[in-house]
């Protein structure tokens, strides 16, 4: 599914473009996902009046463009060369708690425009703010929106357009899960990553394995066994535990004068060594969760500064273990993971 950068003028960084009606939640989404704004604080965001472009430096560099809701991007006042020139995705946000007919109509104009001029752009529709809807109503609304989009497009002779739909909310993990899927489509190496994860799972009796971008909590790949939102949530929460504890106890002791007199002489601390972690459960003492940081880049100036440790770029492998993974098997898993890590280095050479 991945596409290679084809830019003429751009800088080769995939672009995620957030569009949709006013107050549909675009700025909230980008603040929560990329700036860790607590969801309740999005109430105070001001309406967006001009395109806000941000560069994200994560496991891969990409750009997020947040658009004001009221403008028509298919019109001549925008230079389309610039806008859709870069490979990437258009994320169209629809407020599921509001009237959505106008939004669908505008979305369809956009789809038709992109299909004829820029077929390489992925079109992703977020049916957003679903936290406010009851379970039944949520499903009905979702289906209704999909149906209306498809009907209107087929009236215009576009059958089966390549459009994906997601139910999202900033108050739970669904927005992260949706972003993960959007971004995965932009990673050319995805099939290779999935194959590697599949073989890791079968060799180590792992139920589900995710490769996470630690900073954004977006997962860039998982094995191809069925996914449910619950597994994503527990892994994402687990990253928080490891990061928080690492912040508390990973402070830089070398910065303190006289650290060598503290009775720990001879223990070399290497700030950039990959962390690993495991949780064993009460019952039958089987392994439950496993985490390994990988592919972490530290340059010398940041190693010494505690505050930037967490802003280094790295991925983490997180595995949900099956019931039959006794605690004693960790060395075997460690070994298989290091094999996986070597393979990964070939996929993402730096």
């Amino acid at each position: 599914t991945g596409k290679l950068p084809n830019s003429k003028t751009g800088d080769g960084k995939p672009r995620l473009m957030l569009m949709g009606q006013r107050r549909s939640g675009k700025s909230s989404i980008s603040s929560v996902v990329f700036h860790k704004l607590p969801p309740s604080e999005t109430l105070y965001l001001e309406t967006t009046t001009k395109i806000k472009k941000e560069a994200m430096h994560s496991f891969m560099d990409f750009q997020v463009w947040d658009f004001p809701g009221h403008l028509d991007y298919t019109g001549p006042e925008f230079d389309p060369e610039n806008l859709f020139d870069e490979i990437g995705a258009l994320i169209w946000v629809i407020d599921a708690q509001d009237e959505y007919l106008e939004a669908i109509h505008r979305l369809n104009r956009m789809i038709i425009y992109l299909q004829s001029s820029y077929p390489a752009i992925n079109i992703e529709v977020f049916v957003h703010k679903v936290d406010g809807l009851s379970d039944d109503y949520r499903g009905d609304t979702f289906r209704d929106i999909i149906q209306r989009v498809q009907d209107e497009l087929s009236d215009n002779n576009y059958e089966n357009p390549p459009v994906s739909f997601y139910q999202t909310s900033i108050y739970d993990h669904s927005i992260f899960e949706a972003f993960s899927k959007v971004i995965q489509k932009l990673i050319p190496q995805l099939p290779t990553l999935e194959a590697l994860l599949n073989s890791l799972c079968s060799n180590s009796r792992i139920e589900k394995a995710y490769l996470f971008d630690v900073l954004s909590k977006i997962y860039i790949a998982t094995d191809t066994s069925p996914t449910d939102i619950g597994s994503y949530a527990i892994c994402s929460d687990y990253i928080d535990v490891v990061i928080d504890v690492s912040e508390i106890y990973g402070w830089d002791r070398f910065m303190q004068i006289g650290s060598t007199t503290a009775g720990e002489v001879g223990l070399e601390e290497t700030g950039n060594q990959d962390a690993d972690s495991v949780i064993t459960m009460d019952r039958k003492a089987h392994n439950y969760l496993y985490l390994k940081e990988i592919n972490k880049y530290a340059n010398p100036s940041t190693i010494l500064n505690v505050l930037t440790v967490c802003s280094l770029r790295y991925l983490a492998l997180i595995c949900l273990m099956g019931e039959d993974s006794p605690a004693g098997r960790k060395p075997l898993i460690d070994h298989n993971v290091s094999v996986f890590q070597d393979a990964l280095k070939q996929v993402f050479p730096r």
Binding site: Y249, T270, N272, Q273, S277, V278, D282, Y288
Partner: peptide, 15 residues
């Protein structure tokens, strides 16, 4: 929902 053990090992500390 109790775990039996949680381990975290890094280059700076073990926990």
């Amino acid at each position: 929902a109790n775990f039996a053990e949680l381990q975290i090992k890094t280059g700076r500390f073990m926990f």
